[in-house]
Design a binder for these strands. Structure first.
Lengths: 182, 182
DNA sequence: ACATAATATATCTTTCGGATATATAATAAA
DNA sequence: TTTATTATATATCCGAAAGATATATTATGT
């Protein structure tokens, strides 16, 4: 079975929302779906060129004067391909959580450094929660259907971060206890 | 800055728990840290050979007769490198959740297929929860310090799945409502 | 007896990540 | 005012990672 370049479809999906340059696309991707969908600049850049060659995206605006900037948009063919891909059941989600992996392979004498990592993780999750709250506040209350879907992904982010915070606190409690017990 | 092959250290960490063949290693990885740490066979196979060349792992057992099987173990040098890597702060966790991405880039008329995907996701999270419960029951109550670390990662898995289940139910409620409203 | 599933190693290609180079415009600091 | 830094912007390279596939043996189920 031929492997699917999912980055292709992520790009089509985001460009359908609004035409963007590669640079803007990377930024928008990070700010909108970045919490649960990782994309790298190198890969996006390569993919967007492939998509252009295949006729799924096209240049809709190019500033010849001043700072160069190439804005891409989705073609009719690209829209069709995207919709067709969206009907396929999603692949299982993959995660690479280095903190969790380190905890699993650590030994007892390494617990103090794990505590440091957990505190940092807790702090960063709390910070991000505040950022999400700000984003949520900026979405109008009388949400149309499209923003209802976005709110669902935002809600996932909030729950994910809260789960992380709760677990970090639990882990810190546990590790501090076992430290005292010696 | 030179990039780090984290698979190398995941392998060292797991092989330190017990010597294994490449095949067993992949299985063990999936069953122990698979929920939050993704590894592929192709990459593990290549990495284990690199590690052998560099002297971080060694063959500890090889069945010449019958079915061929090569069991690897961590060398003293490998243990040192692992411990040194464990002191570094973990990289930010990365995720690729295709379901969430599809929800973000979908349009209103695609909501019915999203409902199907959410139901499948809910069912699979519920199944996995049962599997984790079985694993937890098999760990003795008077846990030593090592298994206390493992319990923490298991606890993370439980919370992650519960969060997923709660969110799926919320999403299904929301989408069914907006369907009725038309 | 036969088919199927589990065990086991090996290889190949494509996808993906991220470091780095280069250049311009806007902003902050000296 | 000049200088330094940050944000915007494209492009390329290479190593890490994913996963499809080939091959062979040993259990297990029908």
């Amino acid at each position: 079975m031929k492997r699917i370049n999912t980055t292709h479809f992520a790009i089509l999906g985001l460009l359908r929302i609004k035409p963007m340059s590669a640079y803007e696309l990377v930024k928008f991707s990070k700010e909108s779906i970045g919490l649960f969908w990782n994309e790298s600049y190198g890969h996006i850049h390569k993919s967007i060129k492939n998509l252009e060659t295949e006729g799924d995206v096209e240049i809709v605006e190019e500033s010849a004067t001043g700072r160069k900037k190439i804005v891409y948009g989705v073609t009719a063919q690209g829209r069709e391909r995207l919709d067709s891909w969206l009907t396929l059941p999603p692949e299982e989600s993959v995660m690479r959580n280095e903190l969790l992996m380190k905890i699993f392979v650590s030994e007892e004498h390494q617990i103090p450094q794990l505590v440091d990592f957990l505190q940092a993780e807790l702090a960063s999750a709390e910070e991000l929660t505040a950022v999400l709250a700000g984003i949520k506040a900026s979405i109008p209350a009388g949400a149309d259907r499209q923003s209802r879907l976005w709110l669902l992904t935002l809600d996932y982010g909030e729950r994910y971060l809260q789960m992380t915070i709760d677990w970090c606190r639990h882990a810190l409690d546990t590790l501090n206890q076992s430290n005292e017990e010696g």
